[in-house]
Simulated assay, not measured.
Amino acid sequence: MADNQKSKAKMEQAKGKAKETVGRAVGNERMTAEGRAEQSKGDARQAKEKGKDAFRH
């Protein structure tokens, strides 16, 4: 299950980065902000999983 959450975090980060980049390219501030939010969500999920891993070992 942890691997699933880790891959989900990476996917959210990548999707957010792509959305942010496209938003900047077309000048859409809303899309840029949504991209940043998705990246933050992915970062938080990844940090949570790293914390879990630290207690498992």
Results as ranks from 00 to 15, higher is better:
residue 1 M to K: 11
residue 1 M to A: 14
residue 1 M to L: 13
residue 1 M to P: 12
residue 1 M to I: 10
residue 1 M to S: 13
residue 2 A to N: 13
residue 2 A to T: 12
residue 3 D to E: 13
residue 3 D to Y: 07
residue 3 D to F: 08
residue 3 D to P: 03
residue 4 N to R: 13
residue 4 N to Y: 11
residue 4 N to P: 01
residue 4 N to G: 07
residue 5 Q to A: 14
residue 5 Q to L: 14
residue 5 Q to W: 07
residue 6 K to C: 04
residue 6 K to H: 06
residue 6 K to T: 07
residue 6 K to D: 05
residue 6 K to P: 01
residue 7 S to Q: 13
residue 7 S to C: 06
residue 7 S to W: 02
residue 8 K to G: 01
residue 8 K to Y: 02
residue 9 A to G: 02
residue 9 A to C: 03
residue 9 A to E: 00
residue 9 A to R: 01
residue 9 A to K: 01
residue 9 A to L: 05
residue 10 K to N: 06
residue 11 M to Q: 05
residue 11 M to V: 00
residue 12 E to Y: 00
residue 12 E to F: 01
residue 13 Q to V: 08
residue 13 Q to A: 11
residue 13 Q to C: 06
residue 14 A to P: 04
residue 14 A to Q: 09
residue 14 A to C: 04
residue 14 A to K: 07
residue 15 K to D: 03
residue 15 K to Y: 03
residue 15 K to Q: 13
residue 16 G to I: 02
residue 16 G to C: 08
residue 16 G to L: 03
residue 16 G to R: 00
residue 16 G to W: 00
residue 16 G to K: 01
residue 17 K to Y: 02
residue 17 K to F: 03
residue 17 K to P: 01
residue 18 A to V: 14
residue 18 A to N: 11
residue 18 A to Q: 12
residue 19 K to F: 10
residue 20 E to L: 12
residue 20 E to F: 10
residue 20 E to I: 02
residue 21 T to D: 14
residue 21 T to G: 08
residue 21 T to F: 06
residue 21 T to K: 15
residue 21 T to W: 02
residue 22 V to Y: 03
residue 23 G to F: 01
residue 23 G to W: 04
residue 23 G to V: 07
residue 23 G to C: 10
residue 24 R to D: 11
residue 24 R to L: 09
residue 24 R to H: 12
residue 24 R to C: 07
residue 25 A to V: 03
residue 25 A to D: 11
residue 26 V to I: 15
residue 26 V to Y: 00
residue 26 V to F: 00
residue 26 V to S: 00
residue 26 V to Q: 00
residue 26 V to H: 00
residue 26 V to M: 01
residue 27 G to Y: 05
residue 27 G to D: 06
residue 27 G to N: 07
residue 28 N to R: 11
residue 28 N to G: 05
residue 28 N to M: 05
residue 28 N to I: 07
residue 28 N to K: 03
residue 28 N to L: 04
residue 29 E to C: 08
residue 29 E to S: 15
residue 29 E to F: 08
residue 29 E to L: 15
residue 30 R to K: 15
residue 30 R to M: 12
residue 30 R to Y: 14
residue 30 R to T: 15
residue 30 R to G: 11
residue 30 R to P: 06
residue 30 R to W: 12
residue 31 M to H: 04
residue 31 M to V: 09
residue 31 M to G: 07
residue 31 M to D: 10
residue 32 T to A: 15
residue 33 A to S: 14
residue 33 A to C: 08
residue 33 A to W: 09
residue 33 A to H: 14
residue 34 E to C: 05
residue 34 E to I: 04
residue 34 E to W: 04
residue 34 E to H: 07
residue 34 E to G: 05
residue 35 G to K: 05
residue 35 G to Y: 05
residue 35 G to W: 05
residue 36 R to W: 02
residue 36 R to M: 10
residue 36 R to S: 12
residue 36 R to K: 15
